[in-house]
Simulated scan of single mutants.
Amino acid sequence: MKRLTKWRLASLFAILALILSGCGKPYLSTLQPAGEVAKTQYDLMKLSTLIMVGVILVVVVIFIVVLVRFRRKDDTIPKQVEGNHKLEIIWTVVPILLLLILAVPTVAATFKLADVSPMDNKNSNALVVNVRAHLYWWDFEYPGKGIVTSQELVVPTNQRVYFNLKSMDVKHAFWIPAVGGKMDVNTDNINKFWLEFDNTKANEAGNLFYGKCAELCGPSHALMDFKVKAISKDKFDSWVTAMKNVKTPQKADSVLAQQGQEIFNKSCIGCHAVTPANNMPETARLAPNLTNFGDRSRVAGILPHTKEEIKNWVRNPETYKPGNKMAGKYPQMSEDQLNALAEYLMGLKVQ
Rank of each mutant, 00 (worst) to 15 (best):
K233M: 10
D234F: 01
D234R: 05
K235V: 00
F236R: 06
F236K: 05
D237T: 03
D237A: 10
S238I: 04
S238C: 00
V240L: 01
V240I: 07
T241I: 06
T241L: 08
T241S: 15
T241H: 09
A242I: 01
K244Y: 03
K244E: 11
N245Y: 06
N245K: 15
V246H: 02
V246D: 04
V246L: 01
K247C: 04
K247Q: 12
T248V: 09
P249G: 03
P249F: 01
Q250E: 14
Q250H: 07
K251P: 10
A252Q: 08
A252R: 07
A252G: 06
A252N: 08
D253H: 09
S254E: 07
S254L: 06
S254C: 03
S254K: 07
V255L: 06
V255S: 14
V255R: 04
L256V: 08
A257G: 05
Q258Y: 00
Q258H: 02
Q259S: 09
G260S: 09
G260P: 02
G260F: 09
E262H: 10
I263C: 02
I263S: 11
F264H: 13
F264Q: 09
N265T: 08
N265M: 12
S267W: 08
S267G: 00
S267D: 14
G270Y: 07
C271R: 07
H272C: 03
H272N: 06
H272F: 04
A273N: 12
V274G: 01
T275G: 03
P276N: 04
P276W: 01
A277L: 12
A277T: 13
A277R: 12
N278Q: 12
N278C: 01
N278A: 09
N279R: 10
N279Y: 10
M280W: 12
M280F: 11
P281T: 03
P281E: 03
E282P: 14
E282D: 15
E282N: 14
T283W: 02
T283I: 02
T283N: 15
A284Y: 08
A284H: 09
R285N: 08
R285H: 14
R285Y: 02
L286P: 01
L286K: 12
L286M: 11
L286G: 13
L286T: 05
A287Q: 12
T291V: 06
N292R: 09
F293H: 10
F293T: 05
G294N: 08
G294A: 05
D295S: 13
R296F: 01
R296T: 12
S297F: 08
S297I: 03
R298H: 11
V299R: 07
V299Y: 03
A300E: 11
I302Q: 04
I302G: 13
I302V: 11
L303C: 09
L303E: 12
P304L: 11
H305F: 11
H305C: 02
K307E: 13
E308G: 09
K311Y: 11
K311N: 06
K311P: 00
K311F: 06
K311H: 04
W313F: 15
V314F: 05
V314C: 05
N316A: 13
P317E: 15
E318C: 00
E318G: 08
T319K: 15
Y320S: 10
Y320G: 03
